[in-house]
Structures are given as structure tokens and as C-alpha cells.
Write a protein that binds this DNA or RNA. Structure first.
Lengths: 235, 235, 235, 235
DNA sequence: TATGAATGAGGATTCATTCAT
DNA sequence: AATGAATGAATCCTCATTCAT
């Protein structure tokens, strides 16, 4: 219980080390550790004590950065959500055909799902959040849904996608994608990018109007799957 | 807290009513109520007290039928799993082509996913189970995976399915199916059967070798989506 | 839990057997089983369920013979106590010298301590009894104490025992005797009678006035160490 | 129930008082209070709530110092056991004759038996401990037994003790001593030292070879019968 | 007389959270 | 900014006991 484990991930509180890193860096470290633990054991089984232990700090110290356990959970979700929405915005800005947009969405979303914060989007239980936060997550999910549906609709309109039931099509695609958050293991045979490339074709093959050949993708700035956590600070 | 709510579902313990129903019927009622509650609130937030309240009994009475909360959770999962495996066995017995088998699997699995016990397969967290039971669930998941992969492989062999990456194909299909357990609401526009029919085509369209027209399905005994709970008794 | 163990001791409810034995015999069987279990596991750890299981009956059936668990405990104690008091009465009736009486007391008490009901006198905790019953047990203990002290005093008076502190002498002797209830195991090297014979000399050697040779004991009716339980019935 | 009793013994948590005492002091206070309560009411009847109440703290606070109720029980036992073993070691170091050693053992053990932690050695039920801890206590009991037997054997060898059955002799002596833990009351007529002095002679008189005159005892450091509790900390 | 089913009371334990230092 | 200590709330589970049959 009291034995500090030798710093699990990469902890800014490494003992005997300078502890003057910036506040945000620590906040971020807490989130990284927490999301990891929540995914491993589930939100309820994971205790703040273990989060703290892995960071070589004590439980109350966490309260300098977060108001509550639920707050941490929500922030983890928020990070994943923001990543997705950022990519959606980028992709939509390209104003490509419906099919091309859809494929970019699939690709980007697949990569995110293979990250911890991405997986948290589908593996955390909204019922564990405040009612207020539940609404936020619900709205987030809807925005993602809408983005996929919009691309499909647009594709039908611009002729790149066959006519189909938009809602069910989106569900099927998102389902296959979300499932990645459950089965992907970093030490598996396929890299996130490989999975993403495959799914971009696979999940759109049946509704693509013409040749399923992938058009050379626009070079997007690589998704920093384990990138910097945005500072969403304790209010 | 103590006020007996007016019997949520259909409770064999309706107060001031004949209490002579069979033991198994009660066991079943507990499971139905529990799975419902677990899905609504999550396993940890749901308390046995509320399960009991909804059944118009007291908490300790539950222990006549189950050894522990975890036991209840596991039995819920078991019921869902058994339904799936039963259908798999039925379907495989038809010895149809790979594609036809796959489509039947998709259809059957989709319907089950739209039931509470089915959804429990993907919405419960294995980490909440005993280590021993975790192994059981893992083995169960593997058997399902194998059934889908086997159908795909067979389809490739018998020419009904295009050559493809079996593993990823199975993941994509199962992902879309499992997602049903998250989004399906009984009061939605589509019935489980409609969803199942759609997905049977949709999820196999890209890998089907020839015409995507669905062959008239073998008439299977209708899936009892809210059917009788098998008696798996307290050991 | 539900599996009836194959009748531990000797149970009048042997399954598939005639169940018409007399009520008292059953009462007695309950007590024998209970005292055994209480000694093995302690009063609180032992459950009535296990008592019942060992007797191939069900828990509520016990309530036909006893009003409560505490009632059973008290009756066990009572049986042991009565055995002791019966022997004391017998021995005092001989009106032998103080030393001879003391030795007979030691002998008789030692044998009883090596029985289950005897051990229950020192291994059960009075705090587990009703206040009323605690008084009864306390009075019982006092009577035993008094018997030993009386013999010692008489011995001092009649010259068979050296002058000594009566109270401490009695404590020392009773302590050594009571301890038998803790260490005696039926499968040990020494029989209760051997222990009793030894202690009769050993515990009186230092206070005996003359030769430590034991005078040939009056032939007492043999103590039925596992003998019939007296009927002290549910009132 | 919730009314804080006015601090039973001497509590480091006296309300509205400085709470800066050392952790070990508190641990010790818990043990002192617990052993007292366990002796008064028995382990099972005693609740952690009452332990906490007597210390003017709340139940969960106890878990800062101990892992479980059983842990507390075991530590109480350990303290008593260590006291005994310490004295045994001291006494054996004198390398006196068998008889002298035996008398010192009796004396020291008697004094300890008249203390709460000492009494806990014979009044707690091993069945209430973890299997692992049961083994520890069993081993402890054996070591004490061995010490007494060793002294007796040595006495027979060096001629200070008459030939006798070593095992039974040890049982008789230890029985008389252990019984002290049951009858001794601090407000009685005799002090622990007086009892100890008496028993040292009394329990060895019959086996002492020559004059029963006690040899002037080696001056041992006074037994701290209610002395400081050793720090055996939460692991 | 015996039982299956149910209950009420209670206790240990966990853990997020707070507070004084 | 961080901690040790403490708390309060909650939950699971056990078990003696009762009751209708």
C-alpha cells in the first residue's frame, strides 16, 4: 500500500528529482495515468490511491488539479473527444467529395480509437458522470455521428456514394470503428495506421459508387496519438 | 428507500399476491431485473437493494438464489452467451455456404444484441468478474470470434466470399454488431429483425463474391429475444 | 451449502430412515452436534446451518427443540455443569477425609474435562449468554469452587492436608484441571482415566500431609464421559 | 451509539486536544483499547465501532493502523506472546539450575497472565485468526511449552527436580498459570507479584528435589506488565 | 414435525473527500 | 504544493429468527 511503485509511466514527480515542472505537465500526467488505469480496471475498481501511487504522489495531491474523481473521468473523455473533433474540423475543411471525406473520417477516427484517450470515448460509462457532464458527452457523440452522416449524405448527393440508409450506414461504420477501442492492443501485429488504412476502404467499400481504389490521401498532419494533452483547467 | 416501488417489471413477488411460483421463475426474475438495472446504471452504481426493491423483496432474499452480486453479473453474461452459442450451433448445423452461414450469424447475433442479455455481453466489464469467471467469458468471446472467422474462411474456400483478411473482416463485422448493444433502444424506429436483416446484407456486401441479393433465409426458429431464461442454478 | 453432508456423528435423521425416534433423543443429538461444532469453530463462527447440516435436517427444525442459539449454548454448558455437580454430590456423600475427597474431586473433574460437554464449561464464553444465564453459570462455577475449597479446608481441619492458602490452592488445582479442556485430544497417548489418575496425585502432592500414595479409591460408578444427555427440556 | 463516550482509558485523540502524538502511540492505544474490549465482551461481540468510540475516533480511522479486525486481534496476541518470549529468553540466559529456571519461568509467566495482553494469549480463540496466523500462534504456544519442558528436563538432569512425566508436569503447571488469565481481576486482594511468588513455589513444590525453600531470586528487570507496546507496524 | 422462503439487524470494509499542518 | 490523518457515506454480505405451508 505504502510502497511507492517505481514510477509507472513517466512521472514528473519522480522521487529525488526536480519537482518544478509546470502545473499543466503534472495535470497531464495525472490524466494519462488515470485513463490508463480506468481502462485497465474500470472506473470504479480503479482507486485514486492507485492513480496517485503510480505517480509517486499521494491521493490528496490529486485534488490540486482536479475537483473530483468524476472530474478526472470527464477530462479524459474530453481529451479524446477534442481530438476527434479537431480532426473532423480539419477534414471537413478540405471540402472533398463525400466519399473521400468519409474515408478520411474513418481513417482519423480509427487511429484515435487505438489510443488510450480515444478508447476512453467508448469504454467509459456515461452513467458515471454528472448529469451535466452526461449531456456534454451526449452532445459530443451526436456531433461525431453528425459528421459521419453528413459525409455520407454529401456523398450520396455528389454521386460518390450509393444511395443508402444514412443512419444505419453510420451506425455500422462507427460500430466497427468503436470496437477498435476494445480489441486494439499496442503490441498487436497491426499498427494503428495499418488498421486505419484498411478500415478506410473496408468500411466504405459497399457504399462507394465507383472503383474502391483509394484516392491518394491528402497528407494530413500526423495524428499525435499520444500527443500533448490540452490544458482544460480546473475552473 | 424502503418504500416498495409498485413492482417495476413483472415480479413474482407482487405483494399480497400468491407467492407460490416456482423457484426458477424467481431466479429468472432476479436476473431480468438485475440485467436491466446493470445496463441502466452500470454494475457498480446499481445496488442489490434496488434490485430487491424492484422485485418487492428484500436484499438478503436475493442470496437465496445467488451467492454474490458478482454471481448475478456472471449469470447475466452467461445467459447472453448461451443464447449466442445456441444460435451458432443451430446455424452451423445447416452446413450452408460460407457466405450464407456468415449472413445467418450476423442476423442472429444482431437480434441477440438488441436484447438485454445480449447487450450485457458487450456492456459489462470483464474486470468486474472473478478471475475464474473472466477466463470463462474470454473463452466465450473467443468461441464467437472463431465462429465468424470460420464462416469467412469457409466462404473464401467455397468461393462465396472474396479473399480478404479474415481477422480484420471479423473484427469489422463484430464491431458493427456489438455496437448495436450500445445504441439500440426498444422504442426506436427499427425492430431488431429489421436491423438484423439490414446488417446481414450490409456487413457482408463488400466481401460477397457475387450478387448481394440475399438468398431467402432458411426459416430458423424465431429467436426468443426476451425468451425464457435457462435454469443455471446456484451450485 | 445445500449438500447434506453424509451425517457427521450419529444422526437420528439419517436420510431415508425411520424418523420416529423420541423427541429427547433428537434434542440430545442436536446438543452433541452443537457442542462439537462450537468447540471446533467457536460459538460465533459456528452457524446453526452447519449444525443442522451435520444432522441432516434444516435450520428451522432446530427451533422445535430450542428457542435460540444461545439456548443451545446454555444447554451445552448446563449438561457439563450437571455432570460435575452430580459427581461432586456423589463424592461428598462418601464423607471421606479432606485429602481423599479432594483427590476424588480432581479425578472426577479431570475425566469430565476430557469430554466435550465438560470442555464446554471452560471454553465457552459467558459473555455470549443472556444476563440471566450468565448468573446461572457464575453460580455454577462458584459451587464447583466451593466444593474444592471445602475439601481443602476439611483436609486442613482433619489433618490430611497441610495448612495452606485455600483460595490459591483451589485456583491452582482448578487451573490445571480446566486446562485439560484445552489440550486434551481423544486421539492422544493418554486416556482420560490415566490423566485423571495422574492429576489426582500430582495436583495434591504438595499439600498432602503424609504419604502421597493414593488410597485405593472407592469404586464409583464409571463416569459416562460421552454418556446420555439429560433431558432438560424446552420450557 | 454515536455519542462519543468521554474517553474510556487514556486516548491520544482526546477531543479538542492536541492531536500530534506519534503514530505508534496511537497504534498502541488502539491495541490497548481493543484488547480490553475483546476480553470484556469477546472478539465477536466487540465491534470496531465501540473500539473507535472509546478512542474518540471513527471506525474507518482504525484502518489507518490495521488492515482488519483480525489483524488487531492477532497483534494483541503477538504483544502478549512477545512479552512471554522475551522473558523466557532473559531467564534462559541466566543458565541457572532446572528448578531455578522453572521457578523463574512460572513467576514471569504468572505476572504476564495477569495483564491484559497476557490474558489474551489464553482467552482469544485461535479459530478467529487467519489460517496463516493460526500457524503462528500455534508455533508460539509450542515455544512456550518447550521452554517449560526444557527447564523440567534440565532439572531432572541436574538433580534439582525429581524424575517425573515431563509432558504432564508441564501441562499441569501451564494450566494453573493460564487459568490466572481467567480469574485474575486487578482489583483483587492479591497483586500479580504476590500471585507469581506464590505460584513459583506452589507449582514446583511437588517436583522440587530438596528443600522447597525458594532460593533468593535473581533480580530481574521488573516486568512491565502494562508497559509500552512494541511497534509492530502495518505492513 | 419439518421446510422453503424471507427478513431485519448489524458489522466489516472501502474509498472519495476534507482539513490542519 | 503536498501530506498524514481522519471522516462519512455507502454497500455487500451473514445469520439468527420467523412464518406460512
Amino acid at each position: 500500500m505504502d510502497t511507492r511503485t517505481p514510477a509507472h509511466d513517466h512521472s514528473p514527480w519522480l522521487p529525488f528529482e526536480s519537482r518544478r515542472r509546470a502545473r499543466d505537465e503534472k495535470r497531464e500526467a495525472v490524466l494519462r495515468t488515470a485513463v490508463q488505469l480506468f481502462l485497465e480496471q474500470g472506473y470504479h475498481r480503479a482507486t485514486l490511491n492507485e492513480v496517485a501511487d503510480r505517480l509517486n504522489i499521494t491521493k490528496p495531491a490529486l485534488y490540486n488539479y482536479f475537483r473530483s474523481k468524476e472530474d478526472i473521468l470527464f477530462e479524459c473523455w474530453t481529451i479524446g473527444q477534442e481530438r476527434v473533433e479537431d480532426r473532423i474540423a480539419e477534414i471537413e475543411a478540405f471540402r472533398e467529395s463525400g466519399l473521400a471525406t468519409l474515408r478520411m473520417l474513418v481513417r482519423a477516427y480509427a487511429v484515435i480509437m487505438a489510443s488510450t484517450f480515444g478508447a476512453s470515448l467508448v469504454r467509459f460509462n456515461a452513467a458515471d458522470l454528472t448529469e451535466a457532464n452526461q449531456k456534454v458527452t451526449l452532445a459530443g457523440k451526436r456531433r461525431i455521428d453528425r459528421a459521419f452522416r453528413k459525409a455520407i449524405k454529401q456523398g450520396i448527393a455528389d454521386g460518390s456514394i450509393k444511395s443508402c440508409d444514412v443512419k444505419l450506414t453510420a451506425f455500422a461504420i462507427l460500430g466497427a470503428l468503436n470496437w477498435i477501442g476494445h480489441w486494439y492492443k499496442p503490441d498487436g501485429a497491426l499498427s494503428p495506421d495499418q488498421i486505419a488504412d484498411d478500415f478506410a476502404v473496408r468500411l466504405t467499400a459497399d457504399i462507394a459508387k465507383r472503383s474502391p481504389a483509394i484516392r491518394p490521401q491528402k497528407k494530413l498532419p500526423a495524428t499525435k496519438s499520444s500527443g500533448t494533452v490540452r490544458n482544460t483547467r480546473k475552473k
